[in-house]
Design a protein around this nucleic acid. Structure first.
Lengths: 346, 346
DNA sequence: GTCCCTCGATAATTCGTATTAGCACCTTGA
DNA sequence: TCAAGGTGCTAATACGAATTATCGAGGGAC
């Protein structure tokens, strides 16, 4: 069921007023330019019939004829409304929604994408992505093949998060991690730290590699040798032991949650944070991490990124040459309370 | 523009495989009943072409012809991804998304609805609601006229939250507030409280009136006279003064945030919560309220409600007589730490 | 050889709106 | 009186898929 009685159509209006369906359409769209003219009296008769019947154009038919929708797809590799990721994606969506609303666009959440191999796939049998005029891609790691396919098929899209090329230039709106990370490192150096460690992957997704680049660059410039501790498959206890054994006084953590774990463990062991160990967080929690620790570091401009992603996408759709299709948004520094000068070396 | 090159249509597939458009449609829809037969070999050829081109049926055209497209609209009076409501809506959306994903439906967020008079309106010139098969309505207070119009126009929809009739039965999935509130009150009575107050509107939206009903009923049953304090236009200080002056020992708050404000103020004044004043919260925060207070009260089964709303909606769409179109979901009691027996009366 | 039946596929139509080419009529001017 | 030009509207078609009536080919029975 979708409505029991037949709805009023332009045809009905036309019959009622003794004009053609085309005329009704023209009146409705206020067309009165050089090519099309409607007598004021006819126009009035039609408008009157429309008013009395309460006629409203069927948006479906309208879209079919107009060939575009003002609908933007939103594809997320993880569920859009996540429970397990500490709402990391939420601010992006806030920005996306705000901008879409301002532009009068609706959002199509491509939730029907089936999960295969632990993540969703864009392309599948019953893919409705093409209903949308274009789409925004959200997710830590996008599938490179699918990205490439989007490019070759000419599907307008924009990635939230910088992406390396995938057989063509990839439009994106990313966070500018290298300078933000470098700034964090410089703050630690300025505070007097000389032994710094990077905790995290430092590779893989662009967002991780970018942080590492900034970290390296800042230390290189200062002539310091960094320590890199991959966090995968290592317990917090193990990491902390290694940090302390290496004489590290400031730990720069890629993942907020890792920072929380290290900080809590350090405190449990009677160490003072930041007195004995400074901890710097490179961004917001991507995994749930309940803590009241106010980390020094920076914040990812997620809302702004979401907003700009929609801007870029609509720019692409309208083939607007003014719109830069690849953007990096600066991260916002956070003073926080987990950076202090190192203890005087004994 | 909607993609530089024209999209692939059934016609293209038909030409590629040397069949007619109709055949492509039949294959796509797996039609192979008494009236329609397709040779397995032809079917395979068509399916192959579909796979290689990545063809996807245009949902707009599909909807025009078939009257459905497995897209569910989500209309929210407030923004879907709110920043100011403390993510109150988030769990609903989690449930909605989960169920939609399981059913293979996409979600169309009707974000383009223009804001008029401080809230969004469903009906406007360029309403795309009809693009979806049906829609889920989310929001504290739905406009009664718009609701009535949905009913009369035969638009399939379901409201999250109980709604009074609006010119016809309104399908809904609501939280069952009266018994949950009554249970909270009984806990307070059992703990020994005799002077209880209800803080909040207690009227207006169904969700508020329902809480008040449960409150009244439980006190009536116990032969107690309740105190009702409307919170609108009153400062927390004012409210607290009134509570104490009236000798109230247990405050039942409609709005979580009000509870937080009262509790904090009480503590600032040297009162113990719950020692001197028990505070019971009727649900989750709908406004941002940062606190670590573990309120006694109940939790609104938001995720479950979202899930069931989608179930109800698809039930309506399929005219499934098994699906109850009006459902109340029980709230989950929370022990919390803000209820204690009242001090012995001096 | 004809009739009938089944199988496999298609032409034609529908859904409701947007758009464009062009027709019929009228006025004007020479 | 006839071409030129303007006016007001309509017929036709497109948009992309779903559906139904129908058609041709091939096989078997007689």
């Amino acid at each position: 069921m979708t409505g029991s009685r037949r709805r009023v159509t332009q045809h009905d209006i036309a019959r009622m007023t003794g004009v053609s369906q085309a005329t009704v359409s023209l009146v409705l769209n206020g067309r009165d330019d050089g090519n099309v003219r409607i007598a004021p009296e006819t126009r009035e008769r039609v408008l009157h019939a429309i008013r009395t019947t309460g006629y409203v154009a069927d948006p479906v038919a309208r879209r079919l004829a107009a060939r575009h929708n003002r609908i933007l797809g939103v594809f997320t590799y993880e569920p859009v409304f996540p429970t397990g990721t500490g709402d990391f994606y939420h601010p992006f969506l806030v920005g996306i929604e705000e901008c879409a609303e301002r532009l009068g666009c609706d959002l199509l959440l491509l939730t029907s994408a089936p999960v295969a191999g632990g993540r969703r796939r864009i392309f599948h049998d019953d893919n409705r992505l093409r209903l949308a005029d274009g789409c925004v891609l959200l997710g830590r790691s996008l599938d490179r093949d699918e990205l490439a396919r989007l490019v070759t098929e000419g599907q307008p899209f924009v990635s939230v998060g910088r992406r390396d090329d995938a057989g063509g230039p990839v439009p994106y709106v990313g966070a500018d991690y290298p300078p933000a990370t470098a700034a964090v490192v410089r703050r630690a150096l300025t505070a007097g730290h000389t032994a710094l460690a990077y905790l995290g992957q430092g590779a893989g997704p662009e967002s991780h590699a970018d942080r590492m680049r900034g970290f390296q660059a800042a230390l290189d410039a200062a002539g310091r040798t960094p320590l890199h501790l991959p966090t995968t498959d290592r317990s917090p206890a193990d990491l902390l032991d290694t940090l302390l054994a290496a004489g590290v006084t400031a730990a720069v953590v890629e993942e907020y949650a890792d920072g929380v774990a290290i900080a809590q463990l350090a405190r449990e062991r009677g160490l003072d944070v930041p007195g004995d160990l400074s901890i710097l967080a490179l961004g917001d929690p991507t995994r749930p991490a309940s803590t009241d620790i106010d980390f020094t570091g920076f914040r990812i401009p997620r809302r702004e990124m979401g907003w700009q992603a929609v801007e870029v996408l609509t720019g692409l759709l309208e083939a607007d040459p003014e719109t830069a299709p690849q953007r990096l948004v600066p991260c916002q520094p956070v003073d926080g309370a987990t950076l202090a000068p190192p203890r005087a070396t004994p």
